Computed example of a mutant assay.
Amino acid sequence: MPNANNWQGDVLRDLRGTPPPQHARSHGPAQEQHPAQQQQQPQRQEPVGAGAQPPTRNSAASPGPAAPPPRTHRPARSPDSRPVVDSALTGTARRPQRGESAAARIARAVRRIVSSSTAREVAELTRTAEQIQQPVTTGRQIAVTSIRGGAGKTTVAALLGTAYAHYRHDPVLLVEADPALGSLPLRLGAESLRWTTADLADIVEPQMSLLDVTGYLVQLPDNAWLLPGSQGRIGAMLDTTAYERVMVALRRYFGVTVVDCETLPAEVARVALSAAQARVLAVPATLDGITSTYAVLQWMQGLPRHMIAGTVVALTSTTPRPGIDVEASAEKLRSTGAAVHVLPHDRHLAAGGELRTELLARPTRLAAARLAAEVFQLSQKRR
């Protein structure tokens, strides 16, 4: 096992391709295929999402109509479906509230009427949509992580996946690589879970069609799918081998894949970061969050240039009145070479639970679209 106190060095070795120490566990990026996998690939592959029509809404519990041939390492039996929220807890949630108050919405509407900002806003949103909708020749993988828990990592991953699914026409996948007690299925409104990332690692094969693959996934609105990390059980594990196998196999089916990673320095998170074409670091708008993130970004300046150039900091305001100057803090983080986007405080996001885009405050929707556009543009620069 790598030394948890020296995870930066482990990532550095991964990125530079230098062999790890003998006591360290070797792991390569999920982006590259092993020779055995390359031999299994069909001679002709369809472009990502080309001619693939999304299947009708199926339950996540039932596989696609064309069942893949049996393999010796397939699970002996299929897992049972489990609800995302226990029935005893479903009645405890309050009615979700809008991202901003009625007074704030009225004041914003008045300002838009008496000013010329509406036309500029529409033009900016059009440009943002055009950037997100650019075609891809190979599926883009975007990893979202954080330095500590409670930074809004899963919320940022859900916002990104929702934005890509809304604007893009090819299939979008959200992968939960935080299997312990990840909340991505809850954030995305999934009702039940069955197949997990570890399960699919033993099932997916190169000859499977998009319809076959999506039969094992949870279908979401707007041509998006979810691959959970666990069924909510404590002790669920995901090793780097299973993660790499799944990400390599699924890459050709989806135009964009957003990975909700564990917090650093978890082993799978390090592999996901090194293999992704772009990375998002979720950071709370607090003094300790800014301080620790600035130190990490300074360390990243010593890595190959593409590492920090392909990293975007999502600075999330957890309270209506943060205890720091958010804009000044963002400029300090930008001085390291990383891009920084500020996600304003939103009452709907702060309450947790299912993310409903129609309840988000307008500034939050615009900020999330800008973040999604820049992350996607950075992922296009790394082939």
Rank of each mutant, 00 (worst) to 15 (best):
L264Q: 13
L273T: 12
V246F: 05
R252W: 00
L273M: 14
A266M: 11
A278H: 04
A249N: 10
V248L: 12
E244R: 14
V280D: 03
V256D: 07
R252D: 05
Q277D: 06
Y253R: 10
A272T: 08
V280L: 04
M247D: 08
T263N: 15
F254M: 04
P265G: 13
R245C: 03
F254I: 02
A278T: 04
M247G: 09
A272F: 08
V268L: 10
E267I: 13
C261I: 03
A272I: 11
R245N: 09
S274Y: 09
R279Y: 05
R279A: 13
F254W: 02
E244Y: 00
A249E: 12
A278E: 00
A278Y: 01
S274I: 14
R270W: 02
V258S: 07
L250A: 07
C261D: 02
R270N: 14
D260V: 06
L250N: 00
C261L: 03
F254L: 00
A276D: 02
A266G: 13
V271L: 15
A276S: 15
L264I: 07
V246R: 07
V259H: 11
V258R: 08
A276W: 00
A266R: 14
V258A: 07
Q277C: 00
A269L: 05
G255D: 01
A275G: 15
A249G: 11
D260I: 07
L250H: 00
V246C: 09
E267S: 15
M247F: 05
A249R: 11
L250W: 00
V256Y: 04
R270Y: 01
R251K: 11
A272G: 12
G255F: 02
V256M: 10
V256S: 07
A275L: 06
V248K: 00
R252E: 03
Y253T: 03
D260F: 06
V246G: 06
D260M: 08
A266L: 12
E244A: 13
T257A: 10
A269Q: 06
G255P: 07
A276R: 02
E244S: 14
P265A: 13
P265C: 10
A276M: 06
R251I: 02
R251F: 02
R251E: 03
V248C: 08
A249K: 01
A272M: 12
G255E: 02
R251D: 01
E262P: 11
M247H: 08
T257C: 10
R252G: 08
V259I: 15
E244D: 12
R279C: 12
L250V: 09
M247I: 04
L264C: 11
P265H: 06
R270V: 11
T263C: 15
Q277G: 09
L250G: 02
R252M: 05
P265N: 09
T257Y: 05
C261Y: 03
V268Q: 05
Y253V: 01
V246D: 09
V271E: 14
Q277W: 03
A269C: 11
F254A: 05
F254Q: 01
G255A: 10
R251G: 07
D260E: 00
A266T: 07
A272N: 11
C261T: 12
E262Y: 07
E244L: 01
Q277F: 01
S274C: 15
D260W: 01
A278L: 03
Q277E: 12
